[in-house]
Design a protein around this nucleic acid. Sequence first.
DNA 1: AGGAAAATTTTACAAATGATAAAAAATACG
DNA 2: CGTATTTTTTATCATTTGTAAAATTTTCCT
Lengths: 187, 187
Amino acid sequence: MEIDQILNNIYPLPESSKSVIKKYISEISYPKGHILLRADKIETSIYFIKKGIVRAYANSADNEITFFFGKEGDTVISMKSYVANEKGYEDIELLEHCDLYELKTQNLQQLFEKDIAIANWGRKFAEQELIKTEERLIFREFRTAKERYIELLTNNPDLIKRVQLGHIASYLGITQVSLSRIRAEVK
Amino acid sequence: MEIDQILNNIYPLPESSKSVIKKYISEISYPKGHILLRADKIETSIYFIKKGIVRAYANSADNEITFFFGKEGDTVISMKSYVANEKGYEDIELLEHCDLYELKTQNLQQLFEKDIAIANWGRKFAEQELIKTEERLIFREFRTAKERYIELLTNNPDLIKRVQLGHIASYLGITQVSLSRIRAEVK
DNA sequence: AGGAAAATTTTACAAATGATAAAAAATACG
DNA sequence: CGTATTTTTTATCATTTGTAAAATTTTCCT
């Protein structure tokens, strides 16, 4: 997906503001398996996915939990670094070879102070991510694991093709064994 | 909590911008039990809590889930109405008599377009809510119900005194019976 | 204070999910 | 193509959490 479309999908920007942002954006590619963002670091860039798929996962003592998948058009960001300038809780791993647009957070922060259209674009970006996160938080509680799987299968069929089931299970909040049981039932 | 402090806690604003916002803010009180925001409505106001405590809950066919408590200094908002101008998924009920500051969304939206400091204040507001929501989504998965209860007890001891346990249980993602079991163990 | 209503706890049983281990299947790669 | 590795499935048993109903405690109202 091209950068113009990605920026506009978040919030329509006047051409002049869009050009200003694009001056600070560069393209970069990394291979499958590359760790793009690290939990123990204050990250200084955000990325938009041109092509490919990534996952965000957090670690605790004994297990690892995948809580986000990003694909074409999505933003890859350590929210904690971006918002609070503190290290985050997640690593982000590329699950395929990825073509990315990179933007230095610092440059964007400066634009927020100077360009009201960009400030409102940044506001809309946060608001939309918030809605998505809130919906996941709420609706997780209303559905059984089986329903959550079926919903993912319906809304995001390609995800299940592109991502291994262990990660999907973790994203759904269950073990891989449970997911296997569910898949056997649903089929 | 006074409105100046609430606004500043979100993001420090120049006095001039703060005065502009305050022109559109009025005070209002409602009794315990009042439903402040409704799931089936596009809400046109947001509120800041001067005094009191509220809960947000969503309904599905068979059960009701509390997913947010707000107290002094917190913002009460139908995020879906505010962000997307669509009806939300939650009712908000006052659990005590509440003194509130009310701000019409429409007025705020207009200020976003005119005042860059206010636009960035709105951005920071969304970003901070996002961080809080994301943390809840992630850390819920890492802790057992018992750990989540103990954490709430530690970080928010007054909540457990002010709110009935059925709501707390729902917030923790467990049944009231489970919470009772946990409380019997922990004591 | 007294009694009704609401909230909380307890108990018994059922269902869902987890842990572990091992087999089967799919994939990667020399 | 064949072997090693990874991923997925299957089976068993243990644990957690849920459901329902009764018992107890607290709150609220007159």
